[in-house]
Every structure is written in structure tokens, then in C-alpha cells.
Nucleic acid binder design. Structure first.
Length: 212
DNA sequence: ATAGAGATTGCCT
DNA sequence: GGCAATCTCTATA
């Protein structure tokens, strides 16, 4: 029995453009073993069209999973110490993906706390892409895992709808493609990372780059 | 072959 | 706010 009830997202969910899939992943539930977190922040990476994507320069050993079929997990190692997880999207050969940036801890809290000794509050457990992976125990062993398969990490729909008006902003940490508003988050959730970054709601700020 | 930057985090001042 | 930790990949030689 899974730690939380819900329906596994089908392959067809992931087989669309990452920019369509990303906002729909908000409020879905990432599950690994007995641990689960509700996804509240994501970013889309669009492969060949996107200079910020790892896949922009083509196929490498590291990005192989991104070029494969949708519905698999692309887990990469960065800064010499951190793992980050993406849901591979689009048809095979199109290297697009959605980076899972933050979550609300739902199940397996004690295991998350054990995995993240630096966390001092519950909101420190999953409030960042590398924190989320560390809390759920996702590392290189999960790279390429089939999210639609019966075992391993997966993503569930537990009935909570996606936000009708998610927060929207430029992606965090990237040096190129900063004009692209491809980061979505659940407005007001304390687990969302980068609260200090400028963010806007699609309706409240129709123009970009004009804020002081 | 070697150097530098990177889809980050946590500890320091 | 600054910066170290330290693997993968790219650029340059």
C-alpha cells in the first residue's frame, strides 16, 4: 500500500510539452517508498530550444534519460553534492523535462528528517530541488526510473486540483533564458523556494521586466 | 590536459 | 550577504 492514496499519472500525461505538463504537476504527489510530498513548485526545460536546458548541447551520458520516452525520472548530480529530479516530457527524442523544485511533506516525515539533518523546521525538508530529493531519498539510483511503473518513485493524483492561478516567474539559478517565465508555484505556500525572487501572478502583472 | 561554470545548499561573517 | 563543497560537462590548448 502506498503511503498516500491516489491515482498514478498515466504515460499520456507526460507525453506533452513540458510547458503544459509543468503547471499541471502542481498539487500532484511525488512518492518514493514510504515518503511523499505534494509538489508546489516546478520549472519547465525545453531541450533543443532552451539554452538553459542540460540537453541544449545535445546528447551526453548525463542527459540520455531526457532524450528517452516520457514518464521517466531524470536525476542529475550538480555542484558536486546535490541530486535534482525531473519528469521527462514530450515524445521520445525530444529532450524536455519538468524540474521538481519543492514540495509539502505529506508522509514519511521521520525518514525525511533523518535524511535531512540540516533541516530545522518542516518547511526546510522539501523547499528546494536538492532538498526535495534528499528528503525523499532520490539519488542517482533513481535516474531513469519509470514513473508509470509499479515500483520505485512515482507521481500520484490524489484529487487535489491544480491551482487555477499558479504563481509564475522566470526560472531560478539559470544564467540564460531568463526572459522565459517557465517557473510555476503554488502561491503563498511556505515550502516554495526562492521567495525572495521576484514573482508575479499571471493576472496581477501582465507586463514583464517593468517592476522596480 | 587543464580550467571554469553550473537547474544548490548550508554555514560563515 | 559571501563563499566553500566537489562532480559533470564544455571550452580551449
Amino acid at each position: 500500500m502506498r503511503p498516500v492514496p491516489g491515482r498514478r499519472l498515466p504515460r499520456s500525461f507526460y507525453a506533452r510539452d513540458a510547458r503544459v505538463v509543468a503547471p499541471e504537476l502542481l498539487n500532484k504527489v511525488l512518492v518514493h517508498g514510504d515518503r511523499a510530498a505534494r509538489i508546489v513548485e516546478v520549472e519547465a526545460y525545453a531541450g533543443a530550444d532552451d539554452p538553459a536546458s542540460h540537453a541544449y548541447r545535445g546528447l551526453t551520458p548525463r542527459t540520455t534519460v531526457m532524450f528517452g520516452p516520457p514518464g521517466h525520472l531524470y536525476v542529475y548530480f550538480t555542484y558536486g553534492m546535490h541530486w535534482c529530479a525531473n519528469a521527462v516530457c514530450g515524445p521520445p527524442g525530444v529532450a524536455s523535462a519538468v524540474l521538481l523544485r519543492a514540495g509539502v511533506p505529506l508522509a514519511g516525515l521521520s525518514a525525511m528528517e533523518a535524511a535531512r539533518p540540516a533541516a530545522r523546521r518542516v518547511t526546510d525538508l522539501c523547499s528546494g530541488p536538492a532538498k526535495l530529493c534528499q528528503a525523499l531519498g532520490i539519488d542517482g539510483a533513481s535516474n531513469g526510473a519509470d514513473l508509470v511503473g509499479a515500483k520505485g518513485p512515482t507521481i500520484l493524483d490524489d484529487g487535489m486540483p491544480t491551482p487555477t492561478e499558479p504563481g509564475l516567474s522566470a526560472r531560478i539559478g539559470v544564467k540564460t533564458g531568463t526572459e522565459l517565465p517557465w517557473r510555476w508555484f503554488v502561491e503563498g505556500d511556505p515550502n516554495v523556494s526562492g521567495l525572495g525572487h521576484r514573482a508575479r501572478s499571471p493576472r496581477s502583472a501582465p507586463r514583464m521586466g517593468t517592476e522596480p
